[in-house]
Design a binder for these strands. Structure first.
Ligand SMILES: [Mn+2]
Ligand SMILES: [Mn+2]
Ligand SMILES: [Zn+2]
Ligand SMILES: [Zn+2]
Lengths: 146, 146
DNA sequence: AGCCGAATGCAAAAGCTTCTCATTTGTTGC
DNA sequence: GCAACAAATGAGAAGCTTTTGCATTCGGCT
């Protein structure tokens, strides 16, 4: 039974078998309050600094990786070097990214999901994951048309 | 009218506005003869060394990037750090990768392509590109089941 | 309060890719 | 063919993102 979570807390950290430390709580807090749910480790680091929390970048990377293993966070490899993270609220989705302004929108399409499964099966593969990202220009006047 | 090319040559390099140099010809040659068409810059470097061609890694990266701009080569960002390159024979396709042995298979599915276009349009995006990679375990006994 | 292992911060290191610059190589016009 | 010049190459340094080592600090438990 998959439930879409709205609120993460220290409970989730504890349930992942991790100590509930200040850095972890703060990182989870920032991820939760993000309007655009997608951030790089570096951006998260800066957001925390702005919020007055001095958490080392190494810790950010470590914690994000642990959160990922625990299923609290999802990591994406969009083009452009840096990994991007977002809270995993239990709703799988794919992304469409504007290559001009960087805006990220999410979508889910059962038809695509089904076809992927069929293709994998037909080739003898057992699907574990997939990454689908569409790149293009968004409807913003500044981005529309090259 | 899209034609699937079987053979690349110095002509293609020249048409891209590039000088027909020995390193570029050799790199194109290796890419062409690959059974599994997907290689990292590092692997390509080693393959050339094995073939007795001492071409600097920096040159490999430069040339691959130029070939990419010229449409001779496609670059993929599979998980695992390194970029992977393959000759662009004009036939767009996506990939399914074994997370155990690394095998890469290709597929093309018009239904998925169409749905992507529809989704992008519905969100006001003009599609420029997309990356779809399925990860799983291939049918090889060594890979099957975790 | 005090113990102990886990977590953190910092700096160093690693992994991949790009850049700098002196030297070499294609190409073009005699 | 050959000189002339711009373009390309090789080697190493540098750049970026991410990981790691280690001394110190912190969280959970008595
Ligand atoms: Mn998302
Ligand atoms: Mn391919
Ligand atoms: Zn945009
Ligand atoms: Zn396999």
């Amino acid at each position: 039974m998959k439930v879409k979570k709205d609120m993460m807390s220290g409970e989730d950290i504890r349930n992942a078998g991790l100590k509930v430390t200040l850095p972890r709580v703060k990182i989870l807090g920032v991820l939760e309050q993000l309007e655009h749910g997608h951030v790089s480790a570096e951006d998260l680091y800066k957001l925390l600094l702005d919020a007055g929390e001095e958490i080392g970048l190494a810790t950010i990377y470590r914690v994000l990786t642990q959160f990922e293993s625990a299923g609290l966070v999802t990591r994406h490899h969009f083009e452009g070097g840096q990994s991007v993270f977002e809270l995993d609220r239990g709703d799988h989705h794919d992304h469409i990214v504007c290559i001009r302004c960087g805006k990220v929108e999410e979508f889910f399409d059962q038809t695509i999901e089904d076809r992927q499964q069929e293709i994998a099966t037909s080739k003898g593969f057992a699907v574990e994951a997939h990454a689908l990202t569409i790149y293009g220009y968004c409807k913003d006047p500044k981005c529309k048309g090259s």
